[in-house]
């Protein structure tokens, strides 16, 4: 993911590879950040206004930075990002969902950034191997969460058309939200029940203020059991990976 001559790369140690890092957890968190970063990057050149283009890509950049730190804890970041097969990615299915219309992107941001902000808040409070990154990232995700909440209010409590689209987007992505609270191996200090309760409370509050209705359907389905964290992904993810990995696979070792 870096673009610099190979000989300078050796002197820049992003994070020392620690042996006590739970690899599965680093991959799960890193893949969430990487995949959502790529999806947000797809808005480049397509956002409704210039300020929003800058906002979405800034959020994508923050996530990419987090992904680089997390993936580097377990191996070579480029190999992990560009040379793994679909089934080896353990990101949530939520983050791989296509951008859809702007309301879908905002609903996905709302669900994920509230989750990530709360999760990093818990990790930052502990003293595990993810605490330093979480303490840094929690400040960044506070801005992501605020961005998503402000847009949810504006779209939900906007025109009839924006209200309908935002409600539809919240409903459509609801079934991917249950997976977020399945405990991740290696993140033993996290109180997943408390996390879920705090997430629901926050969602209820934002949606109510946005004159939207909290979706009622199941937050996960039997056919989705395990899902992204176990490497089972939805159809659009394969196409996204093909685009993301194509350059690196076609030109191995290319630098610029």
């Amino acid at each position: 993911m870096t673009a610099q001559p190979a000989d300078t790369r050796t002197s820049l140690t992003t994070v020392s590879r620690e042996t006590d890092v739970p690899a599965a957890a680093a991959l799960a968190l890193g893949d969430d950040a990487l995949v959502l970063s790529h999806r947000l990057g797809e808005w480049i050149g397509h956002a409704p206004v210039l300020e929003e283009e800058v906002a979405l890509t800034n959020i994508a950049l923050d996530l990419l930075g987090q992904a680089r730190v997390l993936l580097s804890m377990v191996g070579d970041e480029d190999e992990l990002a560009y040379l793994r097969e679909e089934r080896a990615f353990t990101n949530l299915q939520l983050v791989e969902q296509p951008n859809g219309d702007f309301a879908h992107t905002i609903a996905r941001q709302l669900y994920f950034s509230v989750y990530q902000h709360l999760l990093y808040g818990q990790l930052a409070a502990g003293d595990g191997p993810f605490a330093p990154l979480a303490a840094k990232a929690v400040k960044e995700t506070a801005y992501h969460r605020d961005h998503a909440e402000q847009w949810t209010l504006r779209l939900g409590d906007g025109t009839q058309a924006s209200h309908e689209r935002m409600q539809r987007a919240c409903e459509a992505l609801w079934r991917f939200t249950g997976e977020m609270f399945q405990p991740v191996a290696g993140l033993d200090s996290v109180d997943w029940t408390g996390l879920e309760a705090a997430w629901l409370e926050s969602l209820e509050d934002v949606l109510r203020r946005a004159t939207l209705t909290l979706p009622e359907g199941p937050r996960s389905a039997p056919w989705a059991a395990g899902a992204g964290r176990q490497g089972v992904h939805t159809e659009p993810f394969g196409r996204m990976l093909a685009e993301m990995q194509h350059l690196h696979r076609s030109h191995p070792g290319a630098t610029w």
Partner: peptide
């Protein structure tokens, strides 16, 4: 990355043969 390379250059010019730039996250 640009900062690291600039530091490396300045310190090498001052006679340092080996310059290692580490990134630390904590405290944020």
């Amino acid at each position: 990355e640009a900062m690291s390379l600039d530091i490396e250059r300045v310190l090498r010019d001052h006679g340092m043969r080996e310059v290692t730039v580490r990134t630390v996250l904590s405290p944020a």
